[in-house]
Design a protein around this nucleic acid. Structure first.
Lengths: 222, 222
DNA sequence: AGGTGTGAAGGTTTTCACAGCA
DNA sequence: TGCTGTGAAAACCTTCACACCT
């Protein structure tokens, strides 16, 4: 391997990082099937991806393949786990014990593979004390700062209504959380030192609605 | 307005369509505050967007502004609602009555603003018949084709485990559904005539984990 | 004056295509 | 031979900057 100049991680696109997760899912499946080695072309054909893109994405982080052969499935999987930081357990705290927050608290995807929900908070006395399947109990949001420190929370998850989201975000940042996943449909004012990722589920429905409505139509040009 | 050559809707980026939804949220908020008129610059400042991008996104669909003034909030909102097809009610069917599916069935974001969940299906006898808050009852997935036709389902929502997702997707397509939102963490083989949108919630957590792990680190260059 | 609509410039991401290595 | 890793090209997306209109 030739000498390499190093670049900061911030210069890698989120699109690339998201695809690493996708590759990880694919490798999981191949491993379960007992496949030991896979080429970028096989991966691409099997999972409807682009082989050059796979190789480029991986090349940001090292040289993991063997020319003429491909990638060792187990090894590449481990590399991806390390790159994504999934080797150490991440603690997440949910704020907002409505439908979505409650569902995420016992959603298997959020309690496996390196992640654990360590608490769920609300400000509504009717919700505080409620049992969540999986063992959690809804706690009062006023304890947020203590909980973040005591339970070593890395990631905050906002599932409160839009109007309350900014206050919750500020409180999470103030308490020292480094990363936040926001499900509230509102544009939060960002603290630059905290990584914020917005997920508006309804946007996806609206996108589908757009295609249902507009299919085959013509619109003015750019 | 000058003559315009028309372009197919397919040539407009999903990124643009997603931003239309964001603009709609912003306009909702401005309308609630009683703001009647807004310029692209004001919108951008207020919600941390880019004014040129707002104007370009809107320009795909027509000329909605008044030079020297800006946009009429109520009018622009109505234009966006029409563009996104939210003026007519969209029927969605959830397949998979686990945590996530159940939560989405009574998630307010999925039962307002043009959308209505008209059913939730599962293949597990222990779940079939269960009451969902909001009035739905879990039904047997074997009735999927009939339900799609009888209830005029436009959008399928897949919340089954990854291993079952492809079969559910094929069944939805077979039944005549035109658009599908897939929450299962797997790469579905697409039927080209059906719009498929994947949402893997865990990918977002993994992205945050990546930034927590890699913050400030250096990696080999592209 | 003031803000839209839009060509053109600039930046980013994807894809191509092949040198080089196992 | 066969596949990786990677410059170069192509495609795509964002931002600039200003002509034009109200």
């Amino acid at each position: 391997m030739a000498f390499k100049r190093y670049i900061p991680v911030e210069s890698i696109s989120e699109l690339t990082i998201n695809r690493l997760s996708v590759y990880l899912r694919c490798l999981d499946q191949l491993e379960q099937e007992g496949v030991l080695t896979v080429s970028s072309q096989e991966l691409a054909d099997r999972f409807h991806l682009n082989s050059a893109q796979i190789r480029k994405d991986l090349a940001y982080f090292g040289e993991f393949g063997i020319r003429g052969v491909g990638y060792n499935v187990a090894q590449l999987k481990e590399h991806l786990v390390n790159i994504l930081g999934l080797n150490e357990e991440r603690h997440a705290l949910i704020v907002g014990a409505g439908n979505l927050g409650t569902a995420l608290a016992h959603y298997s995807g959020f309690n496996t593979g390196g992640f654990r929900i360590v608490g769920i908070l609300d400000n509504d006395p009717k919700r505080i004390g409620a049992q969540i399947p999986g063992g959690l109990v809804v706690e009062d949001v006023k304890f947020l700062p203590d909980i973040v420190k005591e339970r070593n929370v890395h990631i905050g998850i906002i599932t409160v209504p839009a109007a309350a989201a900014q206050k919750v975000f500020d409180a999470l940042v103030e308490a020292g959380v480094q990363a936040v996943l926001n499900f509230a449909p509102t544009q939060l004012k960002g603290h630059p030192e905290v990584k914020l990722k917005n997920v508006d589920l309804k946007i996806n429905l609206e996108l589908l609605s757009f295609f249902l409505t507009q299919a085959g139509k013509l619109v003015p040009p750019a």
